[in-house]
């Protein structure tokens, strides 16, 4: 077992009286593909949004990425440069072309030259199958294409970790496959991936480990076959029953 890249200990998050995360402890290994599944409101999105501090968390909680503590200040810039994120609603920058979307962060954060950034961006767009649309604006692309651009944009920073927050939930069904295909290819490249998803087929096929969350806690974790074929917990069984048998 390699040393963990992400260490999460006693992660607590509350919204007023509501406890969204009840002291989560979780280590994620370098190169691991971790899928987080669970019902809506179980805290799975909140969990991954804490890893890059889009969601501030309670004092006493601790997250480190590659040994760097996740907390406001200069450390956070370093963490965010190493942690890419793909959102449910794509969040591409609508006033920039697809190419500029992908080039921006390497230029601004990595201080890369325009020419190098453009070369990298075109390579990445090629990899996700969007090279022809490089000079279009996001609104001219389909949802699936936009999400593939968003993946390229995250990859342009050459992150150690990629967080996916329900990347296919806002897509029309016929576009889910093209995004999952890109993610499957990525999983083979050794980048650490944390994927919040409702795509059980993807989780079973691609994940090294599956995490089942409910009520702001990790109920069960294991290999895909442990979770999907032989869940130990009642709540896991009920959830899988509800999403798989229909």
């Amino acid at each position: 077992m390699k040393a963990p890249l992400i260490k999460i200990s006693n992660l607590r998050k509350t919204y007023g009286q509501f406890v969204a995360l009840h002291g989560i402890n979780l280590d994620i290994a370098q190169g691991e593909v971790l899928c987080v599944v669970g019902p809506s409101g179980s805290g799975k999105s909140t969990l991954i949004r804490c890893i890059n501090h889009l969601e501030p968390f309670e004092a006493g909680s601790e997250i480190t990425v590659d040994g760097i503590p996740v907390r406001p200040g200069p450390d956070l810039d370093q963490v965010r440069a190493e942690v890419g994120m793909v959102f449910q609603s794509f969040n591409l920058f609508p006033h920039m072309t697809v190419l500029r979307n992908v080039m921006l962060a390497p230029i601004r954060v990595r201080k890369m030259s325009e020419a190098d950034a453009e070369k990298r961006a075109r390579d990445l767009l090629e990899r996700v199958g969007i090279s022809v649309q490089a000079d279009k604006y996001p609104a001219q692309l389909s949802g699936g294409q936009q999400q593939r651009v968003a993946i390229a944009r995250a990859l342009a920073m050459e992150p150690r970790v990629l967080l996916f927050d329900e990347p296919t939930s806002a897509l029309d069904p016929e576009m889910v496959g093209e995004v999952l295909d890109v993610m499957k290819k990525l999983a083979g490249t050794g980048v650490t991936m944390v994927v919040v998803t409702h795509e059980m087929g993807f989780a079973r096929q691609v994940a090294d480990r599956v995490l089942f969350m409910d009520g702001g806690a990790i109920i069960e974790a294991g290999t895909p076959s442990e979770i999907f074929d032989a869940p130990k917990e009642e709540r896991t069984r009920n959830f899988l029953h509800a999403v798989l048998d229909h």
């Binding site: 890059n52 810039d77 965010r80 994120m85 591409l92 920058f93 921006l104 962060a105 601004r108 954060v109």
Partner: peptide
């Protein structure tokens, strides 16, 4: 809000989030 989040997640500083992403829109 997603525009702020996406730019923050990329590691852009507050200054660039404003000048590159938010103000032009």
């Amino acid at each position: 809000k997603g525009q702020f989040e996406a730019s923050a997640a990329l590691g852009l500083s507050n200054r660039y989030i404003m000048t590159d992403i938010i103000l032009p829109q």
